[in-house]
Amino acid sequence: MPRTAQRGGPQTRARISAAATQLFLERGFDSVTVAEVARAAGVSSVTVFKHFPRKEDLFLDRTADAVDLLRAAVRDRPAGVDVLTSLRDTTLRLVGTRHPLSGVNNSSVPFFRTVAASPALIARAREIGAELQQTLADELGDDPTFTGDATLLAAFFIAGYGTVLVDTARRLIAGAPHGPVVHDHRQRLERLFTALRKGVAN
């Protein structure tokens, strides 16, 4: 998932990702091999692994985006804006724009179904959550303006966001109307930030 300057460049990476996503959505993650993805993308299996170190990363391919968003929320926030406000603004902006990382994008349902059907993807998603938690904790720990408990805030934020995301996924998979689910998703995120503000941000 981390985006590195691999042979073939971003166009090759994008082609591999698109081919993999189509196959996984059509047949399920566990039923598709890396060799099949390579053939569909017109590359070798070696090239696939140069861009995506793990098969799971072919589908869960936005970790680098999430890392960039977390780092920007801490490092690039305007003067006078505290970390929690910046994290809240970033999170709600994702919802407002229906960004893929928001969990309420129009293509989220088939994505969620594919993840839910694969123990390997579920396990990798949990690993990614732990990686993002560590990233945020490191960023907060390096920020001289943050005086709270960096480890606790990172843990509660990532766990809370993940909880909201999983509950939203379950409702969408079950066929709940998209509009009310998005509304509830946003409201629960607001409650998460209120709890963080009162509990661990200071």
Rank of each mutant, 00 (worst) to 15 (best):
M1D: 11
R3N: 01
G8M: 04
Q11F: 00
R13I: 06
A14W: 02
R15I: 08
I16N: 02
F24N: 03
L25M: 11
L25Y: 12
R27F: 13
A40P: 02
G42Q: 12
G42L: 09
S44I: 06
V48D: 11
V48H: 12
F52G: 10
R54C: 02
K55H: 11
E56C: 09
L60S: 00
D61N: 15
T63H: 07
A66F: 14
A66C: 10
V67D: 11
D68F: 08
L70S: 05
A72P: 03
V74Y: 05
R77Q: 07
P78Y: 03
G80E: 07
V81H: 06
D82A: 15
T85H: 14
T85Q: 15
S86L: 11
T91P: 00
L94V: 03
L94C: 04
P100V: 14
P100D: 07
S102R: 13
G103T: 13
V109D: 03
V109Y: 01
P110W: 07
P110G: 06
F111K: 04
F112D: 09
T114M: 04
T114H: 04
T114C: 14
A116G: 05
A117N: 09
L121E: 12
I122D: 07
I122M: 07
R124S: 11
A125F: 03
I128H: 06
G129M: 10
G129P: 00
E131C: 05
L132T: 08
Q133R: 15
D138V: 09
P144R: 02
T145Q: 11
G148E: 04
T151D: 14
L153M: 07
A154R: 06
F156A: 14
F156P: 00
I158C: 08
G162V: 10
T163D: 06
V164R: 13
A169I: 01
L172F: 04
G175P: 07
P180N: 03
V182F: 00
H183M: 08
R188P: 00
L189E: 01
E190S: 02
L192V: 08
A195D: 00
L196Q: 05
